[in-house]
Amino acid sequence: MRPEDFDFIAKLLKDRSGLVITRDKAYLLESRLTPVARKRGLKGLDDLVASLRTAGEDLLREVTEAMTTNESFFFRDIKPFDQFKDVVLPAMLKTRAAKKSFRIWSAASSSGQEAYSLAMILKEEAPKMPGWRVEIVGTDISNEMLEKAKAGLYSQFEVQRGLPIQLLVKYFKKNNEMWQIDPSIRAMVQFREYNLLHDLKSLGQFDVVFCRNVLIYFDQPTKGRVLDNISKIIPDDGFLYLGGAETVLGISDKFKPIPEQRGIYCRNLGGASAAPSGFGGVR
């Protein structure tokens, strides 16, 4: 690929999604965009780039989606979900006892597995929280992924990565060769199209934000901007989850890690307090 073509696509992706593609990742362009080119009857990447220079919104969107779509699986990494059940949920039940409701955001929700994993945990824990209303919102910039998430249809391969068999039996039905998640779980989650680089305020406030394995694709200034934006929609005693390879250190002073709870962050309010109120005493 010619350097000027690479630069053109790299800038397009950065502007539209924040995704940073460096030259050592040029192979990703090949592997993900060649199918897009073929689908359009184009010979290869060179032709695709030529089309992109004069393309309408459809092709620009398709290319962005092809590059930003990433795999997801149920209960990914397990630990964050154990922490949700054992630490975050009890804290929410304590601090939100008066209004009996809170909101969770699965940012860059992809095909929906993270949001549905949380919904299944809440369903399992429901006897402990009568009368509570928990809203789960999943957002992504890919329409294709949002449609898949809304349908709640997963392949046999997908339901075997991370999903305990008891939960498969309890919350899924076999639909030909696919597995579909139960309507009662689907009803607990709303999926919406949203670009993380945009102003987040119209989404409303979220008490718990899952933004795992998203920042790794951004450059430093974009990471900082996204974290600052998230800080504006998280209350002082809310929680932010990042992926195992991500951190706020050196990127944003709006959050700080919660001691002993790897991957979970709370607002950094400038004081010396170690954790949000309601957090102490659980576990």
Partner: peptide, 24 residues
């Protein structure tokens, strides 16, 4: 499950699935 199985893999499987199930 009723007979006492702890987990269940549907073939075809690969090392990723086996590993995921064993860690669960």
């Amino acid at each position: 499950i009723t007979a006492g199985a702890n987990e269940y893999i549907m073939k075809p499987f690969d090392s990723e699935i086996l590993q995921a199930k064993f860690s669960q």
